[in-house]
């Protein structure tokens, strides 16, 4: 699974430009799915299990499992006379994570982020004070045009049990979905594995995908923060203590029936898990919950350190346990 994670995280696909990652994922899921489609916003939707046409059955549900395949990135706003690229963010960019970083444009161009001289060096720069140096000397020889997008350029790092990469948010969720689909021998449910787009700019892919799929249960698989780093935020989630079952984040309260179903599933399968209350951020589940006449929604989270930096860290056992838990959950009838 590590090589899959490496492949997924080293692909560049900021929000709205998910072609590259969609192709990588499509190659993985095509042989595994019963049906595959891409909707108007670019969501990749793979069905597994009996379709609606096969009629209702006891304990059978239509589930939407969503992991977003976009990543945060930068978009060029201006090329100055010396070929420096000014930019703004796509998604939640933190300027303090930029300095000295390298970027890779979707068109292949590469560059490094520099900053202006700061009047107060103790303060983080603003995005307006940063620029990308692509090695150009003028707009003419600059390989980047206004509107070109890029992602962080940082290789996958295998620390054994801990894995580090850019875009772990949420390629790790994509990896969990792919591996669950692979592990799923059979399911009584009509399960849609949805690799969503534009999550980082407002859950836009999940919004339309949920309307299209019309699920009875919506579950996102995404990263969540931790409280286990020196003088970091104090949150009751740690790396390595199992996947997290979300009760609340700042955008959504999980459906309590889903929380209970997931906790009971983990206990039954003797898998470690943590209950999560995240005070900043939200996931595709928020969009699914309010779709059409409402969808009971929840989220299985992969604890992650340094989210939205170029080096997001997860625990490999948490990831594997998430696959086991998700597989166990969707293999059996759901009786509520």
């Amino acid at each position: 699974m590590k090589s899959l994670i490496q492949k997924l995280t080293e692909t560049f696909s900021p929000s709205g430009y998910e072609n590259a990652i969609r192709e990588v994922i499509r190659r993985e899921v095509e042989p595994l799915a019963d049906e595959l489609r891409v909707d108007a916003l670019g969501n990749l939707i793979a069905r597994k299990g009996p379709s609606t046409g096969s009629g209702p059955a006891k304990g059978k549900k239509r589930l939407m499992l969503a992991a977003h395949m976009d990543e945060i990135g930068l978009i060029a706003t201006h090329i100055d006379e010396n070929g420096f690229v000014r930019f703004t963010g796509i998604g939640g960019i933190r300027p303090q994570a930029l300095t000295g970083g390298r970027v890779r444009f979707v068109n292949g161009a590469a560059g490094v982020i520099g900053i202006e001289r700061l009047s107060d060096p103790s303060k983080a720069p603003t995005l307006e004070q940063c620029f990308i140096d692509v090695g150009a000397t003028s707009p003419k020889d600059c390989p980047v045009k206004v509107g070109d997008v890029c992602g962080f350029d940082r290789p996958f790092l295998d620390l054994g049990r801990r894995l580090v990469a850019k875009a772990m948010d949420d390629r790790i969720g994509c990896a969990v979905l792919i591996e669950t689909l692979r592990a799923l021998e059979s399911t009584p449910h009509e399960v849609y594995f949805v690799f969503t787009t534009q999550e980082e700019v407002g859950l836009r892919g999940a919004h339309t995908a949920a309307f299209g799929v019309e699920p009875e249960i919506g579950l996102s698989v995404d990263v969540t923060g931790t409280g286990d780093t020196p003088k970091g935020s104090r949150m009751a989630v740690s790396l390595g203590k199992g996947p997290a079952i979300k009760v609340k984040d700042s955008g959504m309260l999980s459906d309590p029936r889903l929380v209970a179903w997931m906790c009971a599933g983990a206990e039954k399968a003797r898998l470690p898990y943590q209950r999560e209350v995240l005070e900043g951020g939200t996931t595709d589940a928020m969009a699914m919950q309010v779709s059409r006449a409402g969808v009971p929604a929840g989220c299985l989270s992969i604890p992650s350190r340094y989210i939205h930096s170029p080096s997001e860290m997860v625990d490999y056992e948490d990831v594997q346990n998430a696959v086991k838990l998700l597989t166990a959950l969707v293999s059996k009838p759901i009786e509520w």
């Binding site: 309260l253 059409r292 006449a293 409402g294």
Partner: peptide, 16 residues
């Protein structure tokens, strides 16, 4: 349900 956290019941019940 859930008016206080985003009018969720109003959106969904009216849709239904």
């Amino acid at each position: 349900v859930a008016e206080e956290v985003g009018l969720i019941g109003a959106y969904t019940s009216t849709f239904q």
